[in-house]
Design a protein around this nucleic acid. Sequence first.
DNA 1: GTCAAACGGTCAAAGGTCCT
DNA 2: TAGGACCTTTGACCGTTTGA
Lengths: 385, 385
Amino acid sequence: MQPRQRRKVPEGELCAVCSDRATGYHYGTPSCNGCKTFFRRTIVSGHTFVCQYQGNCDVNKNVRCACRHCRFNKCIAVGMDARAIQNDRDRIGPTKKFRMDKRNSSGDDDQISVTSSSPQRTSEDRIIEQLFRVEQLVNALRSCVLLESSNVRETLAAPCLLSQIDQLQPDPLTTFRTPYLAGMEDIKMWNIRELRLCLEWVKTFEEFAKLGPNDQMALVRNFAFTFNILNRVFYSADYGPDKIVYPNGAYILRNAQEAVKIPGCRSIYHRQMDEIMIPFRKFQVTVKEFAAFKAVLLFNPDACELSPEAKIDIANERTKYLSSLFYLITNNIGLAPGVQKYGQLLMMAPSIQKIIDQNDENMHVMEVFEHIWRIDSFVKELCMR
Amino acid sequence: MQPRQRRKVPEGELCAVCSDRATGYHYGTPSCNGCKTFFRRTIVSGHTFVCQYQGNCDVNKNVRCACRHCRFNKCIAVGMDARAIQNDRDRIGPTKKFRMDKRNSSGDDDQISVTSSSPQRTSEDRIIEQLFRVEQLVNALRSCVLLESSNVRETLAAPCLLSQIDQLQPDPLTTFRTPYLAGMEDIKMWNIRELRLCLEWVKTFEEFAKLGPNDQMALVRNFAFTFNILNRVFYSADYGPDKIVYPNGAYILRNAQEAVKIPGCRSIYHRQMDEIMIPFRKFQVTVKEFAAFKAVLLFNPDACELSPEAKIDIANERTKYLSSLFYLITNNIGLAPGVQKYGQLLMMAPSIQKIIDQNDENMHVMEVFEHIWRIDSFVKELCMR
DNA sequence: GTCAAACGGTCAAAGGTCCT
DNA sequence: TAGGACCTTTGACCGTTTGA
């Protein structure tokens, strides 16, 4: 477990969160067993808490359980690092031998639901929990070796990779290295990977699966590059407002480096930073909110070439995710601030649309110079109109 | 939690207090759920009980509730340890999966409409009332003779026409006649008129007036054609989903008539109908809501060529109108339906954006054929990038 | 190879919820 | 209202992984 520094916690050191006796450095911070476990569970489950008071509750050994919102905030404030949490469960096997028995009793395939002990309250909560589980799976899939898929329709018809994720190998190309300037190969690799993930992601929606292949194609062609860009900026490590950092450390500068510039194309990276990445950070969009926002954008009844019959179902689906997003936000931060955050988030959509349109235009320019800037056929099928 | 030892209560172990089945060691003593909870509540509430008899009542499963004094005494006697009781914890929310309560019921009795009947008007109310007054004035101005204005900056700097509206003459070109197929002259006339109205409309916003001329120009160039199209479809008389009708009766067909087609340009009228006009009608958007929606769209912090300083004020202004729109809608129709309507309305913005972008493209095509399809210089200044 | 730091998993025993 | 069945959350303890 890469300890940041190999140092023993001094005798009598206190938990930086609650001042109980620290049992060591956990997630980069001297902390007690309770705060360590609390932090991990909160991150892994994706729970968000609401303070019943003013958000400035005292956190100490005696009252640390009184307000989970303030306890978690303090965990973050004292420097606990969520990246030190290992979501990759293949690397640590079961700690008990009789775990084998459990596997056998629950059937051959280890199911997704093992880890989730979610509260499941209202239908909105269930929707959000489902989105969150899928989001985590997609994030795991992002760093796996993905076989090349040249045909969108076939990929859509194939079984979802997310259910077989434990049989996939980690891809060394995706492991984080010291940040370095991205080259064109990085951009292409991540574009293809993210578009591939998009196809697996959309397949997890029941309503999407019900659509005919042409409607599926229309929706996914309308949405795929949005998914690509949104994930790129949302999951970019925060190296300031002028860098978009891919998971492997490759980064793009605000004024794009020469290596990734395309003659005749207007750079859209600075707009991705100003109009998406910075607002996401400013509004403190959570993973769950992000997932719901993407679902809203996917179900676009105005997507080109949708059949009229499908439009109605798709509009209803959008409404469902809109409501879930609203209650998620307002439950987290209260009605009045939530109304603002919700509105601001939705009003990012037109800006995102403009960026996507600009990208479309760029791709057509690239195609003119196809002998130089060859566009992957899979990308072309998904993103060109 | 310090369990004294990690030991499971033996099968068949009895509660030391009442001899019911023990569910585990609680507060240091094997005990049942009832006595466990009774002990905690008694300690936490600080209650003291008085025995009605001699203080030596029997305490067992059947009569344990008969005398709380003796029950509590026995709890202490068998060794329950009050020091194992913790401070209050955070609320954990509903624990039952299916609850038929709150939101999705009718929104009438929702708490949100505190303001509507109170004499004190909120700031949101005042904002809406102001927008509504201006909307009515602009609607009046639409049918007045408007002097030609060739220069956008000068027009923005000039006094607002809305304050001199009673000195203007009605324009016979705008009076309603029996509907007839619009010709290119109708389209051009209404485009210019609506753009002219847009300039007068934006001037009524205090925050807009405060901006420097370059920022004003950036905002209005970003917004003018949106204003044009939105007013066109919102105020179109309802002759079904396949006609956009101008105030003078000129109408455009879904499959645009030859007279208004432009070679090389994709028609955007059917999209204006499907993605704006029909949703406006379906959602039953009111005039006030429409006005607030336009204000939200005007104050776009992502408009091209805005100065960085202006962006912040503009974002705040947008948030203000977003909140006003939300409270307007939810006060009208209740929280749950309002949340849906609000979200659906805002999510029209990306589709509107796409239509505007398509229009931009068309205008560039038109310019190539400028000798035939001459674009008015005023229109060009406002709408071309 | 050795071993301690720091991961994740476990489950008894805390507290909270909600129907009676 | 108070009681208690049933639920979630907590954290001390333990096995596993990893890097110096």
